[in-house]
Design a protein around this nucleic acid. Structure first.
Lengths: 354, 354
DNA sequence: AATCCCGTTGCACAGCATTGCAACAATATG
DNA sequence: CATATTGTTGCAATGCTGTGCAACGGGATT
């Protein structure tokens, strides 16, 4: 305590300082913090004592320098504050910390340049891997990361030659279409954003495909953004463009909430006049004001898949890239009309408790 | 390209490799990437050429090792997926990246042990500073971080001797009380969580204090969690416990949404029967289904204050700790009854433009 | 032509921790 | 008592980069 006066330069306590105080060599300090290393109990105690007195913590950065393992994992995303992204970030961060990694989050735009910068930054920090929650890096950067042996993992975006984990967009669209079909609807509509991500585009196209295959002519409306306001905007344009739909598929929940609110404000009853299905199952979907029927993507499941890909990839850097699909699950709430009472149980879909 | 074959061990390209390819010493490579260093134009070009061919990026970790600046900033939080936290994380992450820092997010529980672990982890990674979005580290850890010269910044939590930035909870509560007062209400109520954080407790106490000072007897209900379900639970208990309130202050928006939904379901009209005010102003508050009157804490403002504290603290590690307060702003929407048409303009509060 | 000066460049060390190797002491064994 | 064995411990090298210092080469100056 007495000599514990501020080390002035804001320097971290080093192993050297501990060694001097304990009267041993730097190696001994290192061994004292390495499980299984050969060290006498007495020395161990002296070192630990000195370490706690000085407040020493091993420098994992320097340790990583030697082992070539920084334990940093980059998370690059845009719109980190949107509900689903936030859930993803929380789940990934938790899973990575359990794996004793340190998640570094780069929240930026979706410009090719933004993404390239983020990727370069993560390369300079020797991140062990980079996970893209939105967008994907330009080809040139992919080449560079490959040269540097830094694995890249994409979420909900396929890219040949890269590891990826994505939900079964097509199957989700099919479940949505079938559930809406069962209401006896005939005027189908889809709400999406302009320039949709591959995943959003897949949902729209698959849904439209099923509708057409069943002899319907779905209308498709695209708003500027895939958020609440975008949902409102799309719903407004949808109503203005012709007869109101009786079945609406929104490519994500946020747009569904906006659409729902606009439809209700316009005097339409949900689900009596129009049934609505969203995608993601963010927590808000369960709130009393919405009770949205939607397709669940489980963030913890995704995080688990990402971690397992990470394990595999680090164990064997040269194994062929994998593409993990995980299923989406229809969560039935109250925005889809029930035609026959018995049908609910019959088709064996899961009903949200409460 | 030809010789670009995989370097096998997943090793990052080092300056050594670039030096060999360019036929210069490693120092030259270092200088080629240090602005203002003494290097001949020809050599610079050769080095850059070799670097791009190999896909070399400077190792910022090793650079930081030398300069004793890791540029890592720790963000420790719980409930990273709740709307307000997500906004904070997004804003902080953005502000830090602009400052060319790398934000590492540790999303964990609120146990003293969890927090201590997170802090220790960040210490081992030589984070330049740690920002606590929720909770605060135990005294013993604070001492250790001080010894290691790692600054600690708390958000919405005061702790003597530590830098902190917080909103003016008391003023917010006052604004809420005054706005509710103007409706002519007499049965005031507050919704909070059990074991509230200091900030939530301050809001509750201040509000209750103002109510008592004005001769009212506010009822206070606390639920298990400060989320949507907690809001519903609290509202249910509130209605069960006696006559319905006509003015309700919820210590955060999430609880306000739950309360609102429960009140409406119970047949009460908002704002005619009961006025409701929240705290935070998360994006959902502006949605048509809620249109919640609430007190805004601007995440970007908070992030800016954090960065400026960071600048100051790193420039002068020994300057006395600062406590920055930022104002909260009443955003008037539609959950508070308007008594006289003219009063809205008169008291000069800001009205949210749709 | 000799000298001086300046721009370049390499050497070597610093910064922090891990680890193989060798030296050392202490103990067990014949 | 001598030798083999085992456990500790320090030295030195390693991983990667930045930088002070000295050496070196070449052009300008006298």
């Amino acid at each position: 305590m007495a000599e514990g006066k501020d080390n002035g330069q804001g320097r971290f306590v080093s192993a050297q300082a501990v060694a001097e105080r304990a009267g041993v060599s730097r190696s001994a300090v290192s061994r004292a913090f390495t499980p299984g290393a050969s060290i006498a109990p007495g020395t161990l105690a002296r070192v630990h004592e000195a370490a706690t007195a000085l407040g020493y913590q091993v420098n994992d950065l320097a340790r990583g320098l030697l082992a070539n393992r920084s334990r940093l994992i980059g998370l690059v995303t845009s719109d980190a504050d949107s509900p689903f992204r936030a859930q993803m970030i929380a789940a990934l961060s938790q899973a990575l910390i359990e794996r004793s990694n340190v998640p570094a989050i780069i929240n930026i735009g979706t410009t090719a340049e933004d993404i390239a910068n983020a990727s370069r930054q993560l390369l300079r920090y020797r991140a062990e891997a980079t996970v893209f929650l939105s967008g994907s890096p330009p080809e040139s950067l992919v080449e560079i990361t490959r040269r540097n042996g830094q694995p890249l993992i994409l979420i909900n975006r396929a890219e040949t030659g890269l590891d990826s984990v994505h939900c079964d967009d097509r199957d989700g669209a099919q479940q949505a279409f079938e559930a809406l079909s069962l209401t006896g609807a005939s005027r189908f509509a889809v709400i999406n954003k302009e320039d949709p991500s591959p995943s959003l585009a897949a949902r729209e196209q698959a849904f439209a495909g099923f509708a057409v295959a069943s002899g319907f002519k779905p209308s498709i409306v695209r708003a500027g953004h895939s958020d609440y306001d975008g949902g409102q905007e799309a719903a407004r344009r949808l109503l203005a463009s012709g007869p109101a739909p009786d079945a609406l598929f929104c490519v994500n929940d946020l747009m569904a909430f906006g659409a729902l609110d606009h439809l209700r404000q316009a005097g339409l009853r949900v689900p009596d006049d129009v049934s609505v299905i969203g995608f993601d199952d963010v927590p808000i979907a369960a709130w009393t004001s919405y009770r949205l029927t939607t397709l669940r993507q489980d963030p913890h499941r995704i995080a688990k898949e990402v971690v397992s890909i990470l394990d595999r990839r680090i164990a064997d850097p040269d194994s062929p890239p994998v593409s993990v699909y995980f299923p989406v699950e229809l969560v039935v709430r109250e925005t889809v009309k029930v035609r026959h009472q018995r049908s609910t149980g019959e088709i064996g879909i899961q009903v949200d408790g409460l």
